[in-house]
């Protein structure tokens, strides 16, 4: 099994995902883990994604922390360390009202997490927490 670990902050689990860009060089985004959002989307990304390679997807109607008609796109993301890659649907929205942790560019939802064999958080020997994503063996 291939497992990626991400140090948790005091109040959030954050993962790092590489996105394909229009230049061909991947761009790493830090994403807040939030299994509480569901639907057809895997991700919510900030509006500042001009560099990412995207394909238009139909706008949707969102309820909850983000509301109303939302722009959506197809993005291409991967975690090379655990040989994971996927094509995912993302809402692109103004995330400033959500007060995300500093340096976080979006949210990873349940649909993305469930593409992994296992996912979750665990306490390490020194008492700190880390989030993990386990992919199938390659």
């Amino acid at each position: 099994m291939a497992i990626a670990y991400f140090p948790s902050s005091d109040d959030a689990d954050i993962i790092e995902v590489a996105f394909a860009t229009t230049t061909g060089v991947d761009l790493n985004y830090r994403l807040l883990v939030d299994s509480g959002f569901s639907g057809s989307i895997s991700l919510v990304l900030s509006q500042d994604i001009q560099e990412l390679a995207t394909i238009p997807a139909p706008a949707s109607h969102a309820y909850g922390a983000i509301q109303g008609v939302q722009k959506r796109v197809i993005v291409f993301c991967r975690m090379p360390a655990i040989s994971f890659q996927t094509t995912a649907v993302a809402i692109v929205s103004d995330l400033s009202p959500m007060s995300l942790p500093s340096g976080v560019q979006g949210i990873a939802g349940l649909r993305l997490l469930r593409q992994f064999l296992r996912w979750g958080a665990e306490q390490t020997g020194d008492g700190s927490w880390r989030f993990f994503l386990e992919n199938e063996a390659t």
């Binding site: 639907g39 139909p58 939802g109």
Partner: peptide, 30 residues
Amino acid sequence: SAAVLALRALDSNPNRGMVFQVGPLVDFIR
């Protein structure tokens, strides 16, 4: 992925076309 490949085989312009999974166009962000 397969739908994206099929679309881009017909038109490589990244601003053209649309890809989606059939289902409700509703998302819940708690």
